[in-house]
């Protein structure tokens, strides 16, 4: 039962509304009533959030051109998806392949200005025994609309690590569909959202275990302030015969504002019996006792909230394995708290 419709920016009839179950909490059709005009190209300014980490830089401006990259050895690649447009839309296409045994650090940034509509289609193939770490920093304006769809295919023994950090947009959807096509693949997909104003983000993932002995771990944490809305939808499917699967998913969210909203839908669809699967979901607010205690020690209420929020979110960042990457991501996050 895969209700995810193929979204095509050039065809308004494919824009999903909340009547489509997989888009229940992100009503794209309501925000986007007609097909936007195609964005003109734009200049790419600055050097992106990952500049300090080096590696080859591949950029797309308003979706013009495409990225087709194949990694052989141990490499770092920066992919910059830059949008700068007023009321126009564009689709960016990125294809990343790895050769067997390759080790790729993929640093992806979504940078924007204006009230554009961006659609990103990203394909990632992780070959047998290869390893891909994908770090995504999304920094979009509050009037932008964006839909990112990534398809990740894992071969035997592949290792995949993904961490997404976002501050949302007017309506933002970040979807990852990952398939364990062969035995013994190992995936970790983490997410973090920090929302304020009337921003909206939707972190959706579908993990499909088609073969035996796959491992999936997911941790998503988020904070929704003011009138923002955070959405987490995580689906783990274990197909018949995918024995020995170990899949775990957690989503923990903080509501920090009277009118903020969190919607979560963690799903387990299991057809094999020799499995260990679990998900956990919590929604709560900052601990009043801790806030009081910190204020009693002379920390202002605002600082106390920021400290507690940072401590809450850091768990996701701490799971990034590369020290230098973790440092860049921590700075990025701290600047936005």
């Amino acid at each position: 039962m895969n209700a995810i419709a193929r979204f095509d920016l050039n065809n308004a009839a494919t824009y999903p509304s909340r009547r489509v179950e997989a888009w229940k909490y992100s009503d794209l059709a309501r925000i986007l009533r007609e097909t936007p005009k195609l964005s003109a190209t734009t200049d790419i300014k600055g050097s992106g959030p990952f500049a300090a980490l080096g590696g080859e830089v591949l950029s797309l401006a308003n979706g013009h051109g495409s990225i087709d990259y194949s990694a052989a050895d141990q490499v770092t690649v920066q992919v910059r998806l830059v949008s700068d447009a007023e009321s126009t839309g564009h689709t960016a296409r990125v294809s990343i392949k790895t050769q067997a045994g390759a080790k790729l650090l993929l640093l992806e940034s979504h940078e924007g200005r204006g009230d554009y509509v961006a659609h990103n289609r990203i394909d990632i193939d992780v070959a047998a025994g290869a390893e891909v770490t994908r770090i995504v920093l999304i920094d979009e304006p509050e009037l932008a609309v964006s839909v990112t769809e990534a398809e990740v295919n894992l071969a035997a023994g592949a290792k995949y690590r993904q961490t997404v950090l976002t501050t949302g947009a007017r309506l933002q959807r970040f979807e990852t569909r990952l398939a364990h096509h062969a035995h013994g693949a190992d995936a970790r997909m983490d997410g973090l959202y920090l929302l304020k104003g009337a921003r909206h983000t939707d972190l959706t993932s579908v993990v499909d275990h088609l073969e035996a002995h796959g491992t999936t771990g997911q941790l998503t944490k988020g904070v929704a302030r003011e009138t923002s809305r955070g959405v987490f939808q995580g689906k783990i499917v274990v197909q018949r015969g995918a024995d020995g699967t170990d899949a775990r998913m957690a989503h923990n969210a903080l509501i920090d504002g009277e009118r903020a909203e969190i919607d979560a839908k963690p799903e387990l669809i299991i057809y094999a019996d020799e499995v260990q699967c679990a998900h956990g979901n919590t929604v709560g607010t900052l601990d009043e006792a801790a806030l009081f205690y910190m204020q009693a020690r002379g920390i202002t209420a605002e600082e106390a909230r920021a400290l507690l929020t940072e401590a809450f979110l850091n768990e996701v960042v701490d799971r990034i394995e590369q020290d230098d990457v973790r440092e860049v991501v921590t700075q990025w996050l701290t600047a936005r708290l």
């Binding site: 509501i255 919607d263 979560a264």
Partner: peptide, 19 residues
């Protein structure tokens, strides 16, 4: 299969779900 929906529209809610 487990398909829970959790919708929180109030900041003071405390909700826990495990499966």
């Amino acid at each position: 299969h487990t398909i829970p929906y959790i919708e929180a529209k109030n900041g003071s809610a405390q909700m826990e779900h495990e499966a």
